[in-house]
Simulated scan of single mutants.
Amino acid sequence: MNRAELGSALRALRQASGKEAKAVARGAAMSASKLSKIENGSVMPSVVDMEHILTAIGVSEGVKAEYMSVARAAATEATAWRLYQRLGYHRKQQQIQAIEARTTLLRLFQPALVPGLLQTPEYVQAVLGRKQLSEEQLARAVGARLARQRILYEPGRQLRFIVTEPVLRWRVLPPLMMAGQLDKLISVSRLPSVDLRIVPLSARQTDFPSHSFSIKDDRMVTVETVHAELAVTDPRDVALYIEKFEGFERVAMSGEDMRSLVEGIRDDLLREQETG
């Protein structure tokens, strides 16, 4: 099977399963029209699309491996943010949630913003509010992102976050709301499934925080750039991101030392609010 035959092969798989296209599309967190275009060969599915579709159909691991190998022929794929805007950012959040639901070990490095799984509603609103969405689209996107946070409380997960200190100081919100966001980080860091670490500005660095990235188990890395999201699945490339994550992990603060750093910045914000 080659890339040109992929769409028709997926359609044959779905039909053999007895499942309607609408049901598979819903399970794959995509529109029925997108699934139709994939099956007709007019749209090439990404690695993420392929995994979602095969899971929704319910194929065996052997069949999944065969189809995924074709999808991975292009190991790094980019999806422009404007496409997500057209489809609805809430669908993007649902896609991420579907991937996270199948992930046991999540490692996320973030040098610019509080990770989405750790954001307060006000912070989510501020971040997604920059995307020029309608009021309804924004409300649905915010709700979908907050719904993802249920994973924080699910047993059997390992959620490891590394954040650089400037993230705590970046004025995404007014001082009082930022203090509330930092309080949430302190609270969430005590959950048994969460390992939150902060790379302090005072630590000597041998690496540079080029951009944020998220590692799902050892199988996929997603990278956010200005214009698109990249999905990286080549094991050699995934290994590079794991190595980078572990390098920052070694110099990051954790436990009570980390919480003391966050509390100090939070207290500065509260004093600023009082005197402002």
Rank of each mutant, 00 (worst) to 15 (best):
Q119I: 03
A144Q: 04
S31I: 02
Y89V: 07
K131H: 13
G7L: 05
E51V: 00
S210T: 11
S193A: 15
T164N: 03
R102E: 15
Q273F: 13
R3S: 11
G143N: 03
V114H: 04
A78Q: 02
F161C: 03
N40D: 09
R197V: 09
I265V: 06
A252C: 07
A9T: 07
R157V: 08
Q110P: 04
T76R: 05
M50C: 10
D195L: 10
Y153P: 02
E229F: 04
L133K: 08
E224A: 14
D237V: 01
D237L: 01
N2V: 10
R150F: 00
L117S: 03
L196F: 02
E122D: 14
R169Y: 09
L133W: 08
D257G: 10
T55S: 15
R197P: 02
M220F: 03
Q119M: 02
K244L: 14
M44Y: 09
L10T: 00
L159W: 00
R157L: 10
T103K: 01
R150W: 00
S42N: 12
F161Y: 07
S8T: 15
L191E: 11
Q273R: 12
M68K: 15
T222N: 14
F213I: 10
F161V: 02
S46V: 07
A21V: 12
A141S: 14
L168W: 03
V47C: 08
S254I: 08
V251K: 07
K64P: 04
I162C: 01
